[in-house]
Design a binder for these strands. Structure first.
Lengths: 128, 128
DNA sequence: TATTAACTACGAAACTTTTCGTAATCAAGA
DNA sequence: TCTTGATTACGAAAAGTTTCGTAGTTAATA
């Protein structure tokens, strides 16, 4: 499949995408309320972002209703890949192993998650 | 120890830090040459960045000689942590396990590295 | 000492991102 | 229909990032 180049979202855009991924399609009002749980941000600010994101193709919106309903237009996994690759290059000199170990060390990953990762490792080693 | 808040470097700053971490203390000239292997960038552009980074405390410099010698003022690991934490929050909803699995899946990690990670997992599970 | 090459310092333009005020539009209720 | 509240559209200011031109400084050397 031809890989379409993904626009790298800015920090603010990513916050909004996050909300849309988590909550599904939402109005500006809803997104703004969720954003405001963390930090104060004006309604029109959020609106403007979402309009820009719409132009960029990061989100799409349904305009049937008076208050438009926005949803993410790009896949969370794809963006994760873009950002992860970039971080890998710019901060970890391309060493995925280092990145992984840092990630595991920094966060308190649960036993369950550790097991999941181990299983995944097994699959990887078998598969290749 | 009181954790000093690290300034999050910009993309361009990170590229320069990367070079300093890898090559050790260097002059602007050297850094600029390395940058130019990837993309054209004017000498004074690089100089300016390094001056700004000096003001921000991201690098320090020795001015004894005519051409100043710059070195990273912050630890690579600390920045990795800052950036990784941020990515974790903004793109992976805080799930380190997801991040790790994506990282392993995307990159072709060598058998050796996989083993390193497995060992690290073991240590983690024992230790806790 | 006068010239030149290698640097640094400074300032500002160009571009991107973030933030919000104001105006226009619409839907519902008085 | 008139008003009001909710919403979108637009434009532009503010702030941050990137880029580089020009001028000044220094050290070596002709």
């Amino acid at each position: 499949m031809a890989k379409k180049q993904l626009p790298k979202p800015t920090d603010a855009e990513l916050e909004i995408l996050q909300i849309l991924w988590q909550n599904g399609a939402s109005t500006v009002k809803t997104v703004n309320e969720i954003l405001n749980e963390k930090k104060e941000v004006g309604y029109t600010t959020t609106l403007k972002f979402m309009q820009i994101m719409n132009e960029k193709g990061l989100v799409q919106r349904n305009e049937d209703e008076r208050s438009h309903i926005y949803s993410a237009a790009i896949n969370q996994n794809d963006i994760q890949k873009v950002l992860l690759d970039k971080l890998l290059e710019t901060a970890f000199s391309g060493s995925a192993a280092n990145l992984v170990m840092q990630a595991l060390g920094n966060s308190n990953t649960s036993k369950d998650d550790l097991k999941k990762i181990r299983d995944y490792l097994n699959k990887l080693e078998k598969g290749e």
